[in-house]
Design a protein around this nucleic acid. Structure first.
Lengths: 146, 146
DNA sequence: TGATAATGTAACCGTTGAAATTACAACTAA
DNA sequence: TTAGTTGTAATTTCAACGGTTACATTATCA
């Protein structure tokens, strides 16, 4: 299973907010236009980001504020905000290994730490990238366009 | 989205084959009993593992053979065999960013390398664990049981 | 104060994939 | 030939994603 596009959409949102916030009123309609999706999809995502404390959203008037320094919000923070993993586990485990079987009753003890390590490797790498990197990277790309 | 339980089921299969192959005839029914699922689920997985060249399956008579040294098959090999990712990408990307928008037409260039790095971090960790580790780990756990 | 514009949500739909299950053809060994 | 096993098609159930419509709520401004 692939990780849902909510993640790349959320990163797109943050990038667009950073780039456009001084020149445009960045609404869910505006973002939906840039991302190529429906405004309601955006609003649901904004609600998740808001609940995670990463942004504030002005009701009625519209407008999105990032609550921290860009360098203090990592990809991992965004990922955690929008990906609701059951128990926080990346890997789904088969639910009914047979306790009557020696392998069945020990398979969790055998695999859990290894799966955890793999998940941590991914999450550690996610923590290396921040919204600041997105802002700078996008400025470079835009400069090259002209 | 969680990664499907096919991964842990496949690792369970390999562990059970290693542990029981000298004492039992390890069939899809036998494995289904240990794993707590349906024999057809197991057969489909075995077909994937077979297609990846990791095992051979004896038709008619039944019986599974691992084709390489246990130390030469990593978690990553198993993962690749059973998880069919579109384009090999762990992260699904929103499909219609707006090319009229400066951010929309550059978002792929901005994110692709970073997403790739994150995926590679996970896959590199997967390459560290082999079926040999599973065999040894399970032997230790079984020894502790008595 | 009324009109306008935006967010917050509920409700629903279509699609996809996972996991399970039944059924049966194909195959192998005894 | 028979019993046991694999290979695979067909079907079902369920959950999640992404999309869409509709509308109540909220804030600003003329």
């Amino acid at each position: 299973m692939q990780i849902s596009s909510r993640f790349t959409v959320a990163l797109h949102i943050f990038t667009a907010v950073d780039v456009f916030k001084d020149d445009y009123k960045v609404t869910s309609d505006f973002l939906a236009g840039s991302i190529g999706t429906n405004p309601v999809i955006i609003r649901k995502l904004l609600t998740q980001l808001k609940n995670a404390g990463l942004i504030t959203v002005a009701r009625g008037t519209g407008g999105i504020e990032v609550t921290k320094e860009l360098s203090e919000i990592s990809f991992y923070d965004v990922y955690q905000a929008i990906e609701p993993l059951e128990g926080g586990d990346l890997f789904r485990f088969h639910e009914a290994p047979n306790p009557q079987c020696p392998v069945g009753r020990n398979i969790h003890a055998l695999l859990d730490d290894k799966l955890q390590k793999i998940q941590e490797a991914m999450e550690s790498e996610m923590k290396k990238y921040t919204l600041q990197d997105l802002w700078e990277g996008m400025q470079d790309l835009l400069a090259k366009e002209t």
